[in-house]
Amino acid sequence: MSLTFDILLLLLLIVTALAVAWTKDLLAAAIIFSSYSLMMCLLWQHRGAPDVAMTEAAVGAGITTVLFLVAIGRTTRREK
């Protein structure tokens, strides 16, 4: 069960990472990247590193996403 959960999370990590690279809409890419951080956070927690999981949730899923969104808002939404 535990291994299945890990494998599922790792697969989702790969899928979201590829999706970020492929998405042309930068807003969508930022949101997908936030969900990547969420997967990463669950994985940290599941592997027994709650301190890192908290950092990942607060910084990875929270602050960086906001900063990305601000940057997109001030530049352009579509990748050229």
């Binding site: 301190d51 999981a53 908290m54 950092t55 607060a58």
Partner: peptide, 25 residues
């Protein structure tokens, strides 16, 4: 709570600071 309990429970200054900063944003 996260900042002040960093030496007892998971978390600490950096995590709590990120939460605080996110709230500010």
């Amino acid at each position: 709570y996260v900042i002040l309990n960093g030496h007892v429970t998971p978390g600490g200054g950096f995590q709590g600071g990120a939460i605080l900063g996110g709230m500010f944003i």
